[in-house]
Design a binder for these strands. Sequence first.
DNA 1: ATCCAAGTGTTAACTGGTTGACATGTCCGA
DNA 2: TCGGACATGTCAACCAGTTAACACTTGGAT
Lengths: 146, 146
Amino acid sequence: MSDKLTFTLHELVQVLDQSADSLLTSKYGVTGSQFVFLATLEDVEPTDVTTLAECLGVSKAAVSKRVPSLADAGWITTADDPHHKRRVVLTVTQRGRDLVERAGRDLDAQFTALFQHPAAAGLDPRLLKDQLNTLISILRQNGPLS
Amino acid sequence: MSDKLTFTLHELVQVLDQSADSLLTSKYGVTGSQFVFLATLEDVEPTDVTTLAECLGVSKAAVSKRVPSLADAGWITTADDPHHKRRVVLTVTQRGRDLVERAGRDLDAQFTALFQHPAAAGLDPRLLKDQLNTLISILRQNGPLS
DNA sequence: ATCCAAGTGTTAACTGGTTGACATGTCCGA
DNA sequence: TCGGACATGTCAACCAGTTAACACTTGGAT
């Protein structure tokens, strides 16, 4: 019973990610994880590797390894910080900003359409989000394992 | 707004998985993904690599690569199918079955306790699961990208 | 009976994550 | 001022997933 919910949760994020990924790949030529990287960076740019890693919830090393290919592809740029020689300052290129703006709008439209489906009659996205956030805060409060 | 829900969803499964993983690691000496492997296999054993891969939602190759270490660790056994020389039949060992039974009960208890927290007053796990399943079926129905 | 398509599992090369070690840079306190 | 603690990014080694190619088995159609 109970563990079925966690199963359902995993299933939902899987199908959601897959749906987003296929839209992004076919229409915009980026993977889902690339989009998340760019959208997150755009939200906090200009910033450094460490801060972006925290925002993405991954390690510094993971970000560090992805930077070269994204820069080569023209999505982001790297610059030196005149005040700190080891710092690498990351920004999104104009092309990257355009992508995030257009694709983000597209994804948003697809997602809101979900809730306008007849089968989703009694479903309020805001309420749902609140419930999930409640669970998150309880879990965080409990500590790693209770 | 809308995409915040997908963000919340990812955050919830992350903290949930992390919580389960720390319990499993500290009390039972397996990772979360090993537990999922064993619990899933136990549900359909005896079975072959291909079927288990489908049940786990991963590729055959991923299962094939994990089998040797799990067998070495004494969690599963591999056997030949007398009717099909290429088939590898997988089963959980008694030790594995015990683990799944005990750890599964433990996880279940932790999880139901979540919903008995005062902050989770208006939260019905069954209702929540139904809502998530509704979203899944709409997404599946829409096809990969709508 | 034979042959070919489909099924089954393994391997190689790749992706993207982890941790731990490391070199280097910054900055504060003695 | 200078010495050590901390910050910062990169590297190596590893883990676990992917797809594509492969070798082998099975079984049915001709």
